[in-house]
Design a binder for these strands. Structure first.
Lengths: 137, 137
DNA sequence: TTATTATCCTATCAATTTAGTAGGGAATGC
DNA sequence: GCATTCCCTACTAAATTGATAGGATAATAA
């Protein structure tokens, strides 16, 4: 399942992308428009800022804004920050590799190969999709 | 993340598939061979039996066995039984469709389209993989 | 300089899910 | 009848999720 965190994060990014001018948008505005708990959204936007997707400004007239063009924001990067590893098992993860505790031998694990294919299929989608693709409709 | 339930279930199916003769294999044997808690595996094999993947026999010489040929057991069906919906959001699920509570309009949801692509990519893999593909190595 | 606005940040929490464990019941084979 | 093996329900500890609370900090405006 996609977490609410990721879902809300994607919706917020999309919303900010529609405001093509770079002026800050307040959390409250995004939250109301997208039906998201404001406080929850606050923490999501914070992590998006900390990971280099958003800029922010405090005080009156403040808010969040994209610091890159939508077509420069790839879904693979966004998903990794919001949802975590794209792979379903750590032993096939590119960015979060870890040995499975229950597998004596990775090479002879039947699940390994299947999950490798799944990972590649997902990566293919995420690498070929940017924020720009989410708004054009 | 892939649940342990699914991972163990796949490993158990693979193990049973290697025993190509249809004689029952005891839970204990599978559990030991695959490093799985026996009691946990018990419940997993039970759901696989209830969903038509396995047959079972009680008493001495009993155990579980495949009731179809490995190449007839598709991963899409197995994943749905063990892991649940293949789609990451209910609004793009083929078999478990549900409207998202926070979306007023599905057609204008930016997440919807992305998740549709992801679902299709995953389905493509699962539909083109059978249990037979997991063992051939 | 003071008030207002809006983000920043930490801590806490209820509900749900996950990964088991416990323990007895029921069928089968000898 | 007795051992074996699956069948089935209930329970539980730990982790995760989806928030909420409340104040600190920075920017702007008066």
């Amino acid at each position: 399942m996609l977490s609410k965190k990721t879902k809300y994060g994607l919706k917020a990014l999309t919303y900010l992308a529609t405001k093509d001018n770079k002026s800050p948008v307040q959390i409250a505005e995004v939250a109301e428009s997208e039906n998201i708990s404001q406080k929850f959204l606050e923490s999501i936007l914070l992590t998006l800022r900390r990971n280099g997707f958003l800029g922010s400004k405090k005080g009156k007239g403040g808010g969040y804004y994209l610091i890159k063009e939508p077509h420069e924001i790839g879904m693979a990067a966004v998903m990794r920050v919001l949802e975590g590893p794209i792979a379903m098992v750590p032993c096939v993860s590119l960015n979060f590799y870890e040995k499975c505790d229950d597998c004596p031998d990775e090479a002879s694990c039947s699940v390994h190969d299947l999950m490798l294919k799944v990972r590649d299929a997902n990566l293919e989608v995420y690498r070929n999709t940017t924020l720009a693709d989410l708004i054009s409709k």
